[in-house]
Amino acid sequence: MAEWLLWGDVDAATLPKVSLHDHLDGGLRPATVLELATEAGIDLEADDPDSLGAWFRDRADSGSLVEYLTTFDVTTAVMQTAPQLERVAREFVLDLADDGVLYGEVRWAPEQHLARGLTLDGAVEAVQRGLEAGVEEVRRTGGSIRVGQLVTAMRHADRGLEIAELAVRHRDRGVVGFDIAGAEAGFPPSRHRVAFDYLAEHQLPATVHAGEADGLDSIRSALLDGRALRLGHGVRIAEDLVLERGAGDRSFVTVGRLARWVRDRRIPLELSPSSNLQTGAIAAWGDELEDHPFDLLYQLGFTVTVNTDNRLMSGTTLSRELALLTEAFDYDLDDLLTFQLNAAEAAFLPLEAREELADRISSGFEAIE
């Protein structure tokens, strides 16, 4: 595992972390993709793990969410049986734990994994077996990690209510929340209003992909129609900020009404810096990490969290994302602690579990200091 050093001597992997936005079908190991594809008779564009990992990163570096999403045709193709799902989920947990993650939410769309006979419930159960196997393996080696499933509906499909009902059925068997994902522009959360109504009736929390490939109207719909407790990415809330130059070097930021609501209500933003660059989500501000509005949002008091989105497609880890942000914005350990405590507060866990998680994070950071 590559080390991502902070300030020359602190390995970011030693920091306790929370992962809120991490897709199961975007977190496979390249070697696993190769092995499962060979077993299934699927041809790939590369025949060794390093080359395949580079292929995923190159294809994802398109500047377009729609093009970025085409890489998932490969990963979902090798996640169509219960053994495949179990293996991918188990390895997913092991890789999170190896990166210092104490709590992770694993989002994925069961409706994309039915091509070889699995039912929706069977798919969720297979993933849960894999997650539990990974947690147990971490425990046996002296570690500790907790994970939960975020069951996701594809926003361009018409199965939102069916998937919401699936999530509620499994809420006491590993599922902690609901999401919608996929091509954002043209497919607003309002299309799935009946699903979100059902979730609200059954008190299952939702996070909604919004403000990545579409703007403020998408975010507004996520909050109104989706009753989102978190925004998946949400980076384009920065479109509701107006930067005005004053006298000398002074500048002022006018915060729009929607942005004020998100900030003042402490609605967490699941920001994914590397992914946001790849998909063009921050194109309005630039094409380098230093152009990302992450720091502006942080300085203005938004509840920012750091995420990977898809570790395979971005060739990243949470440690790498923290190291990149530290280099870009000169953050210190207190800043990184804030990001993790924000994520712990935003986790779809009971209050007592969130408080315990925050205590473990704080203790872990104190030990490093």
Score class of each variant (00 low, 15 high):
residue 219 I to H: 11
residue 220 R to Q: 13
residue 221 S to T: 06
residue 222 A to W: 01
residue 222 A to N: 02
residue 224 L to P: 04
residue 224 L to T: 11
residue 224 L to M: 11
residue 224 L to K: 11
residue 226 G to E: 01
residue 227 R to Q: 09
residue 227 R to S: 07
residue 228 A to K: 05
residue 228 A to Q: 05
residue 229 L to T: 12
residue 230 R to F: 03
residue 231 L to Q: 04
residue 232 G to L: 05
residue 233 H to Y: 02
residue 233 H to T: 03
residue 234 G to P: 04
residue 235 V to T: 13
residue 235 V to C: 10
residue 236 R to V: 13
residue 236 R to I: 12
residue 237 I to C: 08
residue 237 I to W: 00
residue 237 I to A: 11
residue 237 I to L: 10
residue 237 I to Q: 04
residue 238 A to F: 02
residue 239 E to S: 12
residue 239 E to G: 11
residue 240 D to V: 13
residue 240 D to L: 11
residue 241 L to T: 10
residue 241 L to R: 09
residue 243 L to W: 13
residue 244 E to I: 14
residue 245 R to E: 15
residue 245 R to Q: 15
residue 247 A to E: 15
residue 248 G to D: 14
residue 249 D to W: 14
residue 249 D to F: 14
residue 250 R to M: 15
residue 251 S to M: 13
residue 251 S to R: 15
residue 252 F to G: 10
residue 253 V to E: 14
residue 253 V to R: 15
residue 253 V to I: 15
residue 254 T to L: 15
residue 255 V to R: 03
residue 256 G to F: 02
residue 257 R to Q: 14
residue 257 R to H: 10
residue 260 R to T: 14
residue 260 R to F: 08
residue 261 W to R: 15
residue 262 V to R: 06
residue 263 R to P: 01
residue 264 D to L: 10
residue 265 R to D: 13
residue 265 R to H: 13
residue 265 R to I: 11
residue 266 R to N: 14
residue 266 R to H: 14
residue 267 I to S: 07
residue 268 P to T: 06
residue 269 L to S: 03
residue 269 L to A: 07
residue 270 E to G: 00
residue 273 P to I: 06
residue 273 P to N: 07
residue 273 P to C: 08
residue 274 S to Q: 09
residue 275 S to Y: 08
residue 275 S to I: 06
residue 276 N to V: 04
residue 277 L to Q: 05
residue 277 L to V: 04
residue 278 Q to H: 05
residue 278 Q to I: 04
residue 279 T to I: 02
residue 280 G to S: 02
residue 280 G to A: 01
residue 280 G to Y: 01
residue 282 I to S: 04
residue 282 I to N: 02
residue 282 I to W: 00
residue 282 I to H: 03
residue 283 A to W: 08
residue 283 A to P: 08
residue 283 A to R: 13
residue 284 A to I: 01
residue 284 A to N: 08
residue 284 A to G: 08
residue 285 W to P: 04
residue 286 G to Q: 05
residue 287 D to I: 08
residue 289 L to D: 04
residue 289 L to N: 06
residue 290 E to C: 06
residue 291 D to H: 09
residue 291 D to A: 08
residue 292 H to L: 08
residue 293 P to V: 01
residue 293 P to D: 05
residue 293 P to H: 00
residue 295 D to E: 13
residue 297 L to N: 05
residue 298 Y to L: 10
residue 298 Y to R: 11
residue 298 Y to S: 10
residue 299 Q to W: 03
residue 301 G to N: 02
residue 301 G to K: 03
residue 302 F to V: 01
residue 303 T to I: 05
residue 304 V to Y: 01
residue 304 V to W: 00
residue 304 V to S: 06
residue 304 V to H: 02
residue 305 T to N: 00
residue 305 T to E: 00
residue 305 T to S: 00
